[in-house]
Structure formats: C-alpha cells, structure tokens
Design a protein around this nucleic acid. Structure first.
Length: 634
DNA sequence: ACCCACGGGTGGAAACATCA
DNA sequence: TGATGTTTCCACCCGTGGGT
C-alpha cells in the first residue's frame, strides 16, 4: 500500500499536483452551486461504481460513453484536461501540461461546469472593468453539476443534494437569455437538460485558445501561434442561435462580451480539422440544437480569441460593428468618458455594454459613429499625447490592468513600507496604462492601500451584518446555548465535508495513479471525535479512501502532514469561492459567524493547525476545510 | 512636544444603471 | 436620449497612538 507521500511524489512526477487540486476545487464549487441545469439533472449514475462511491467527475469520455462508446483512442482534443480556469482568474492553469495520458478524468470539469469567476473580484469588492464588472453580475454563476455531487452530502442523492446547496437560490434572474438559470424540475435528461419551459440545454465542449496572430481557422498553420487557455464545458440552451454560440459560450465560461468581439469559432469533430461556422451553415436562424444536437458526444467547439484588441474597422458600419467597436473601446475607457467623445450617449453605451440594446442603431447613427471612430483611430496616438486635454485630476487605477495587480500586492503585503510603495508605483508607471494617464506616486498608492484596507473592513462588516440579520430572522427564539450547539453542529458538518472532500481528492488522485484505494480511512475517520461530527443530515458515507501517511490527530490539535496541508490550500480557494457564492445568494450561515469572529488573513491560519486558533479566528465557511480530519471540541 | 503612521469618517466626483 | 438615482472610490481632514 503506498503511503500518501509516495502518492504525492509519484503524482507530482506525472502532473502538476496543484493544478489537479485546482481542478478538484473547480469541480467542487460546481457541485455546490445550484443551477438550473444542475437541478434538472437527476444526478446520473455515470461512472458510479457503487452506492458508496465518492463523487465522480464526469469526463468527456464518460459523457460520450453515456450514449455511445468513446471515440476510439485519440482524444477529441490535444489539450491538457487540467486546464480549467478562464484567463481572468488570478490563477491560471496555463502550462500545466503534465497530465498523465489516460487520466483525463482528473482534469475534467463536470458537464456544464461553467466558470463564474470572471476577474474574480470578491462580491463586494467586485470592482472591475466597466464592462466586465457588470458582466460578472449578469453572467456569473452558471455552474452546473451534472454528474457531480457533494462528497459528503449523500452522493448522487437528490435530497442530499438539496442539503449541500439548500436555500442557495439565485435571486437575480440572468438577463442573458442563454444561461440556463431555470427552476428545478424533476425530469431528467440523459445528456441535455430540459427546463420547465421545455427548453433543452446542451453541453458543449469548448476549447478556448488565445492567438497572437490573425484569428482564423482557415489554415492548419494558424493554430501554431495559439495556446489553449481553457478546456471546459458550457451548458447552452439548445435554442441559442448558432451564430451566437461563440459569444454565448464565452460569456458562460466567464469571459466578457468585449472579448467575444474578436473571437472566432469552429466545430471540431474528434480530431478532424475544425470547420468554421460559415462552412457549416448559412442559415442565420439555425440553432444550436439544429447543428449540435446529435454531435454533443463528438464535437468540440474551438474558440480562438485574439490577444490583441481584435476589432478591425469595417467597410460599412452596421449596428453590429458599432457594438463591437464600442465594446472594444470600453476595454480602455469608461462609459462616461467614451460618451463624451463619441456620438453615442452614455446610456446607449451602457446598454451596449450589457448587450441590452433592443432596437437597432439607425444607419445614420452607425455612419456617424463610424466617421468618429475612424478619426479616433487615426489620432489615437495624438490622443495619448494630448496633455492639454482637461483630464480628471483624480487618480484612477485601471480596473483591468492595474487594480488586479495591486490587489495581488495588497494580499501579499497589507502595510507596505514607503520603499515598497515606491516600488509599486514604479511598477505601475512601467505599464502601458500610464502612457495615457498621470503617473502614479507612492502617495497615491498609499492612499489606495488605505482605502483598500477600509474596503476590506467594510466588506467583512457587511458580511457580519448580513449574517446577523439572517440569524435574527431564523433563530429569534433559540437560546444562546442552543446557538452554540448549532454552531458546533454546523461546524462539524462542514468539517466533515471538508474532510471527506479531502479524502475524496486523495482517493481520486491515487486511483488515477493506479493505487489501491480500498483501504480504511484509518487516521482521519477514526480520529477522536470524527464520528460525532457526522451527526445529523450530513452523514458521511465514505467507505473507501486512501490510507495515507498522515500524522495522527489528537483532540484540540491537528497535526496533518504538510502534504495534506498543501491540499488544504487548494481547498481554501474552493471555500473562498463558495463563500462568495453564498454571499451573493444571501444565504450565509449565520450561526457560524455569530460565534466565530473572522480573521483577515487566511494564509496565516493555513499555516497553523492549532485548533483553538482556527476555531476562534476564522470564518468557518472558508477555513474549516483547511484542517481535515479535525473535529470541533468546544 | 513633536513627528510619523494609521484608521475613521466623509465629501464629492466618477461610473453606471434605469426611468420616463 | 436626457435626466436622475445609486454605487463606487479617490482624497482629504482629524483624532489617536507609538516612538523619540
């Protein structure tokens, strides 16, 4: 029987371990996020060995095998299945290509798992690009969990599913008509799901590539300067117009509309040469169902994006080209600023940015815009050097190019020294953004840091308030002591989830590597207090896990090996995401936070396995996962 | 006492969404 | 499409606390 360290070392030889953990993380988030597509699924038993089995990710192959055998030996795409995250993630999976052949399951997203993490700003700090920021609100959270359920919440059991996601409903209707946010329905569909309205959804296997050159599929060579940045599934309504599939899929996968401007799609059957949409059909009214309906098992939607700006001036300006130009311009300019320059009003631009513009722009307006755009493009350099133009005296940081970087720095150092601030300012000034904007000074950066601290504080206060409100409404009559009891119970529940999730991961990892996985959970599950934590509705039925080299656990002090600790890092991200989802859905578990104050630095705690510190100082929904195998003891 | 750094509070402009 | 409401965020003022 291999030890855990053996497993990991072997594992790391074959693939990027953390990439795999990321993948698990993504999948788990998907599994815990209720969506229509998810809920319409009866949790198919694909890949399920026995009723006690742990959750199984639905792989491309599995998906295909549901109705037909998998396409022989060659995978439908040459890309690493580990690649999951959209580019806007802070984390990128680019370059994680050490995937052992034949182990595609590990990296596969669950069917329909679409990222909702565009730009990944926190819900409250969700400041982002003018267009993307809004896009997040409207297009986010389109996870689907077909074939994937919570590890602890009763695998593949509908009621358990509701336990894991109970009460988490999307309050905000998705304005984009293709998201599949539909109410639950008990009617299952084997591959495609069916909404109550009768609209089927189809899982579309998407491979997103960034290309430095011209976006085209015309020549075989043109793929040589492309790099795959995402390999995932998007669940799209079958009624989606085929011509809209690329944009819709991109939005579903967490990209913002402006990125779709330059995108080009092609359909690839198995590993054949991709067929561009124009080759496939001229019918503008053709829907996804018409084209894709019978091909879900074998077809892949390859989407190429241009890493450059991507919008080329058309000969004749149409409603569509104006929209594309506007979206392109909004990458570098705010709506208001653009409205001041161009013939469109800010409100029109706002509607375009959100793709809400119902009526077409008049030909006259399009021409007017086109004329302006040509001049704008011609003088683009002149604009940047026009120092005389009355610019806003307020320092603004570019929401796409600067703020994310600053946030990264902020996370690393919340109270930087003056020297560091100066460095940050210098770094920012090196960026192309500062060619057109006033230079950043250390003082400005300092103010930003200060405001960021305030923002952070405000956010946690808001969270706290939200939780307290929830608590008031739901637990008015509950005595304090019982609150504590409940807290403990919930705590334990989450701990069980965390522990089981980890075990599941380990199990999955080892089974992928061909290790025996029928051993006992020994250390973790048998640890003192482990059994009592699983009380209530969250009974953990982990019947097989990987025996591993984990240090023994003692009450009040968890000393998990570093290997496991490194797992927990990945799990942190899962829980952070889950928490963000919870926040958005306004269904945070109140009782936890009531008794458990927060810590502002997760990473600090992730280093520490001291139970008291953990239990006292953290938002449990994030951090319970950090210490697997731990049980709450007062 | 003075300096410095920081947090709290807040004004007001920018950015954005929505209404009529 | 202009007007208006809301949210976000930069920047400033002021009080406080630590160090010298």
């Amino acid at each position: 029987m291999p030890t855990w360290s053996n497993i990991q070392s072997t594992f790391s030889d074959k693939m990027d371990f953390h990439a795999a953990m990321e993948t698990f993380a993504e999948a788990w988030v998907a599994a815990n996020t209720p969506t229509a597509v998810n809920s319409t699924e009866p949790q198919p038993q694909v890949g399920k060995q026995n009723s006690d089995d742990l959750p199984t990710l639905l792989t491309k192959e599995q998906l295909a095998s549901k109705q037909s055998p998998p396409p022989s030996s060659s995978p439908s795409s040459p890309v690493s299945p580990v690649q999951l995250s959209p580019p806007s993630h802070a984390h990128t999976t680019k370059g994680h290509s050490h995937t052992p052949t034949g182990h595609t399951a590990i990296g596969q997203p669950p069917v329909g798992h679409t990222h909702s993490t565009t730009g990944h700003t926190s819900p409250t700090t969700g400041h982002s690009h003018p267009t993307t920021g809004h896009t997040q609100q409207t297009t986010g959270h389109t996870h689907s969990t077909t074939g994937l359920t919570h590890p602890t919440a009763g695998y593949n059991h509908p009621t358990s599913q509701s336990h894991s996601t109970g009460g988490h409903t999307h309050k905000k209707p998705d304005p984009i008509p293709v998201t599949g946010h539909t109410p639950q329905t008990p009617n299952p569909a084997p591959v495609s799901s069916v909404t109550p309205a009768g609209t089927k959804s189809l899982p579309v296997h998407c491979i997103i590539e960034q290309t430095t050159g011209v976006v085209t599929f015309d020549t075989p060579e043109c793929g040589s300067n492309s790099s795959v940045e995402l390999d995932s599934y998007a669940i799209l309504p079958s009624t989606t117009l085929f011509g809209e599939v690329v944009r819709t899929a991109l939005i579903k996968l967490g990209y913002n509309p402006s990125e779709a401007i330059s995108a080009k799609g092609a359909v690839q059957i198995k590993n054949w040469r991709p067929l561009t949409f124009e080759v496939i059909t001229d019918d503008e009214k053709a829907t996804l169902e018409d084209i894709w309906g019978e091909l879900t098992q074998v077809a892949t939607l390859r989407i190429r994006l241009s890493s450059s700006s991507g919008f080329t001036v058309p000969d004749t300006w149409t409603d569509h080209s104006v929209r594309c130009a506007v979206l392109s311009l909004l990458r570098e300019s705010s709506q208001s600023a653009l409205a001041k320059e161009c013939p469109l009003t800010q409100s029109t631009i706002s509607y375009i940015a959100n793709w809400k513009y119902e009526s077409k722009l008049s030909a006259e307006k399009c021409r007017e815009f086109g004329d302006w755009y040509k001049i704008k493009i011609q003088h683009v350099r002149g604009f940047s050097e026009d120092k005389s133009s009355p610019r806003d005296t307020r320092m603004t940081f570019h929401p796409e190019h600067e703020v994310p970087q600053m946030r990264k720095w902020y996370k690393q150092c919340k109270n930087p020294t003056n020297a560091k601030l100066k460095n940050f300012a210098d770094e920012l000034n090196k960026g192309h953004v500062r060619l057109e904007r006033p230079k950043v000074t250390a003082a400005k950066v300092k103010i930003w840091w200060k405001n960021e601290r305030q923002r952070e504080k405000r956010i946690s206060q808001k969270k706290l308030e939200t939780n307290e409100e929830d608590d008031e409404t739901s637990q008015e009559s509950v005595q304090h002591s019982s609150d504590i009891e409940k807290t403990r119970s919930l705590l334990s529940c989450d701990l069980d989830k965390s522990r089981s999730m980890l075990l599941w991961q380990l199990d999955k990892s080892s089974s992928l590597l061909g290790f025996e996985t029928s051993g006992n959970v020994s250390h973790l599950m048998d640890s003192p207090g482990a059994s009592q934590t699983s009380g209530g509705d969250s009974s953990v039925s982990v019947s097989h896990t990987t025996a591993m080299d984990v240090d023994s656990h003692t009450e009040g002090n968890v000393s998990v090996s570093h290997d496991v600790a490194s797992h927990s890092k990945a799990m942190e991200r899962v829980h952070l995401r889950l928490q963000r989802e919870d926040l958005r859905q306004g269904s945070h578990d109140s009782s936890l936070s009531q008794d458990v104050p927060r810590s502002h630095d997760i990473s600090e705690l992730s280093q520490s396995h001291d139970i008291s510190e953990l239990s006292q100082s953290h938002d449990m929904s994030q951090d319970l996962t950090k210490d697997t195998g731990w049980s709450q003891e007062g």
